[in-house]
Every structure is written in structure tokens, then in C-alpha cells.
Design a protein around this nucleic acid. Sequence first.
DNA 1: CGCTGGCACTCGAATGTGAAGAGTGCCAGA
DNA 2: TCTGGCACTCTTCACATTCGAGTGCCAGCG
Lengths: 338, 338
Amino acid sequence: MLSERRLQVLRAIVQDYVGTEEPVGSKALTERHSLGVSPATVRNDMAALEDEGYIAQPHTSAGRIPTDKGYRLFVDKLAGVKPMTGPERRAIQNFLDGAVDLDDVVARTVRLLAQLTRQVAVVQYPSLTRSTVRHVELLSLAPARLMLVLITDTGRVEQRMVDCPAPFGEASLADLRARLNSRVAGRRFADVPHLVEDLPDAFETEDRGTVTTVLSTLLETLVEENEERLMIGGTANLTRFGHDFPLTIRPVLEALEEQVVLLKLLGEAGDSGMTVRIGHENAYEGLNSTSVVSVGYGSGGEAVAKLGVVGPTRMDYPGTMGAVRAVARYVGQILAES
Amino acid sequence: MLSERRLQVLRAIVQDYVGTEEPVGSKALTERHSLGVSPATVRNDMAALEDEGYIAQPHTSAGRIPTDKGYRLFVDKLAGVKPMTGPERRAIQNFLDGAVDLDDVVARTVRLLAQLTRQVAVVQYPSLTRSTVRHVELLSLAPARLMLVLITDTGRVEQRMVDCPAPFGEASLADLRARLNSRVAGRRFADVPHLVEDLPDAFETEDRGTVTTVLSTLLETLVEENEERLMIGGTANLTRFGHDFPLTIRPVLEALEEQVVLLKLLGEAGDSGMTVRIGHENAYEGLNSTSVVSVGYGSGGEAVAKLGVVGPTRMDYPGTMGAVRAVARYVGQILAES
DNA sequence: CGCTGGCACTCGAATGTGAAGAGTGCCAGA
DNA sequence: TCTGGCACTCTTCACATTCGAGTGCCAGCG
């Protein structure tokens, strides 16, 4: 077990290193933080911290830098979440309030996060597993061709073509539209399959084929819709990463282009509360030198999607976490209002 | 006027520099290209080319590198467009054929372009100025609240809420829906305002307010829709830019995040045929050390949007132009089919 | 037992020197 | 008009040297 002072030393190391981007030595530490002990003592503590694997030296005769394990301890025990100041909150709210539709909300959120944290921001579009159906519309484009339009309560619209096995009359169409909506409107996606399963029985034999086709297209759409999309921004901030560029930045850019990777990354994060994944804690190799701070957001109590930032492990965790939390909260509010 | 041989020397310099990324000297030139003259002669030619501003030396006693003006001449006069090989064409077609919807077409196009050119790809979503309306749908969500859904022939769907000044009956709604569609379905966006202007006259006085509101929302949507979106990919290729990273790459990443900048960039490019903007020819400062190759694409004869790549001025112009042209052509085909 | 000051040691960063090499410009001659 | 030759310029690289920050360890002190 580490003594109180050693923890303080670790905290000081993390703070200094994050600030200066340079390995921090014992002398500098005692000067910049009033630890009340001499450099020699700090050196002993640092040696102990190094033995435990919390810090490391890039090479002999250089200062120490925190390891992933060190950051982990820092985040878990030594640092809180730095709350946003009043003006910052107001700025966030103002900025998000200007959004005109869902795309805009997401776009603004990305910008905002990137700007606040000066890192790369990732925002997942509100997911639909927990969404509900607002309306299903059926349009006849040709005698045996329909268009299915699904409107969700988060404001997303998805359309699919349906080729009918047999011509489908306007009357049947209206009937199907009405029945479908009375059953699924306002219901959760997950409940839809169960709710429509006996729907074909209500139709004449010659229409059943079409009804079945429409339903299966609808169910497919619900599932596919779940293939969540996301938006990223602030990649220019990657240039602040380090001086050893190409090697560090390349895999990160590659990871950011692979939506699958990012979705998995966000998906793995805990469902409630804020998750911080530090360096090698990230499963994806290209992100081994980055940390990901993510949190769920949503209208009302439930999280419908996640957002977060990707930055160097050497990041200002309290500040970043504060910004991420605040943004998530306000986005949730905006979504709830609309 | 430059002699034939001097043009050949310029061509050789461009080709070598693009290949090796290093300033090219007179000796290397005569060795790698059979110019039939000695290095000394080439030196004279190079001095002349330098006087004219086509090439420059980074510092005394280094080889020459092409200037923007040199690349311009190369592109205009010295190099053609390198056609894709058969297998390449087939690969392009196969890859694009797998797309399931518009988003997917655009996403695949971006990937493909980035991969083929090993540069940053930019694809604009099919623009709507020249698009036509496939269908307009009106749904009643609440007594005085409608949802307007616009479906375009390129497969895009846009929805808007409409708050009515007065309650609007189902009968009126059906009437409006029918009239609206009979007038605008299949028509171009640009023609819509004219086509619906007298529509309110056909309704009862108490409904006119709502009809007018719906129409103005529709027109707004048509215009806003025109705020074109785009997708980018292959940013990881920026890491191949040069060795002097951060300075070069940062402004480019910033430019790529500013959709406005990119849209203007594509917009400025000529409407037909391929456009190549080299270095300082780009209005946006951050892109002064990049070249942009763009071309319009679309279903049928008309271009509905543009696509292109952004890369270092030192790029393989013939190959890049070939890839861009080929991809644009096949995307056009795909769009025409669906 | 823990803290402190002192001291020798290590190793990277910065600086300087010198040789090598690539490339140029210019000139006289074919 | 082209060519070979030659002197000159600069960058690059390797190597040596210095400088300094930071460490580890130890003996002594409260």
C-alpha cells in the first residue's frame, strides 16, 4: 500500500507531466508543489512508485513519466472530475440550442467537444435499440412497388424500397398502414417483431405475401438501423500529439476511419457513468497510446448512445471528463426537448 | 517558348521527383531517362527552366524540384490521363456494385478513391439542384402538427415538422397530399416553387394558412437540402505527406473539417471535365501545399455533384486523374441504375 | 525509522569539426 | 549548340566533446 505522500507525489507527477509534456524530476517537483519534503525524499518515493509500476523513466538520467497504470490510479483515486464553470456551461447550452435537426445536434456536439477538450471528439448517433417508432408510412410508387418510411422518436427517418410479390391495392395499402401504425406507433423497436407477427392473418390471401414482405423489410430496417453511425471531429488536434508524429498519428487516423473500431470502442465502455480507457486498456492496437473518455447520453434517464473523446494518454483527465460529462448532459436535454 | 527538349526535361524532373520525393539533379536525369544529351546540356536547360519559374532549388547545390507553375505545365501539356487497367476497372465496379443505399454508395466511393489514389478522398453527396422530387408525404402527428417527408430521385429522404396555424382535417390532408404530388412528383427542385404557388387558392379559407405553411416549409427544405453534405476518407494517407509533418498536415486537417471550405473548393472547380488545382491555385490558404483533383459525376449526362482527392502537389497526376475519372464514371452508372 | 544533504555516476542533448558527396555554374573547345 | 572539365558551394553524416539534468546510494541526524 502506498503512503499518502507517495500518492501526492504521483499526482504531482501526472499534473506536471500533463502540463509540460516533459519528464519530471525530483527537484522540479519540490519546487512546483509544496510537498514539505526535500528532493532526496521525493527521489525515494519515486523509486518506490517505479518499483510498483506507476511511473517509468524514458532513459536513465531523465525524469519520470506516468505509466498507464499510473494514470489509472490517478483517475481512479487521485483526481476528481473538474466541473465546468458557469460561463462554460452557458456557452455549451447556447451553442447546442442553435441546432435545427438531429444531424445538426450531432454535428454541433462534435465541434463543441473537440473545441472544449482540444482533442478528437466522437459522437454516436442516438441508437435505436431503445428508441421508439413514431410513425411508419407506406407509399405506393408503382403497382408492385412500395416505399416504406420509418420515423423514429429521435427524429431519424429511414426509407426502404419494397418489391411486392403481387400488386397491392390502394385500399389494402391504407388498411395496412393504419393497422401497422396502431400497433407499433410509440412502441420500442425491440417490441415490434412480437407486435406484428400475426398481422398477415388479418389480410386476404392474395395480399399476405406483400404484407409479409413489408413486415420483414420493416424488421430488417429496425435491425440495420442499429448499425450505428457516428461522427468525428477535431482530428486537427492530433497534431498536438507529440513530436514523434507519423508513427503515433497514423494508426490513430486509421482507427478513426474504421467506424467499426470506434463503435466497438464505445460499445465496450460501461453502459452507465463515465468510462476512461487508458493506453493499453484499449483493445484496438492502434489506440494503445491514446486514452478514450466516453459516457452515455440520452433524452430522459436512459442512455441512447455514447459520446467521447480520444486523446493522448497524457491528457488533462479531470478537465476532459468534466467537459465530456457536461456536453453529454446538455445534449440529453436538447434531445428530450425536441 | 521552351524547346521540345526542355519540356522533356521538365517532364522527367516531375516524374522523378514524384517518384523519389527528392530533388533531382542533372546527372540522375540523364541516367534514368534517355534524353540523348549530356548532364551539362541538361544543366543549361534546367537553368533556363528555373529562369522561367518552372522549377526551383531548395538550396544551392541541391537538385531541382518543380514549382506549382511547373506542375501546371506538366498537367496541361506534358501528361495525359492514365487510364485504369482492365482488372482495376472490374475491381471498381465490383466494389461499388455491393452498395445497398445512397449512404453506402458514397461511403464506398470515398474508400475506393482513397485506396486507389492513396490520398484523401472527398465525395459530395448528390446535389439536389438538379434532382427531382420523387414523392412528398404528409403525416398527421397531432391535430395541429404535421410531418413533411420529401423523397428525392437520388434516394434521399428529408423530414420536417410543421406546426399548423389551425387544425387540419384528415380529408384536407389527403387532398393536399394528392394535389401536391400530382404537381411536383418527377419535377425538378428548381421548378417546384413556380408549380405550387397557386395551390392555396384551391383550399377553403380556414385551411389556407396551413397549406401556405406547409408549402413554405417544403420550399425551405428544398433550399436547405442544397446545403450539400460530403464525406471524406483516407486522412491516414496524410501521414505520407512529407517528413516535416505537423506544419504541413495541420492546416490540411483543419481544412478537411470545414465542410464549407471543401464545398467551396469543389464548387469553384469547373462544372464539366476534370479540374486540377495546384498548390497556390487553391484559394484556401491551408491547402496551398496541396493539389486538388476533382470532377463532376452524376447519373445520366448531367453532373449532380463532385468528387475528388486532395494530396500533396507532388502527386502522380496522370494516375490520380485516371482513378478519379474512372470512379466518377462508375458512380454515375450506379446512380443511374438505382 | 524516516528524512536530509552530499556526491559520484550516467546518459541524452547540444555543439563543433571534418570529410564526403551531390550538384551547380561557367568556360573553353569541338 | 553541345560537351567535358573544373572549381566552388552546401548539405549531410559521423564522430568527439562538453554540459547538465537527474539519479542512486550512503552516511548522518532527529
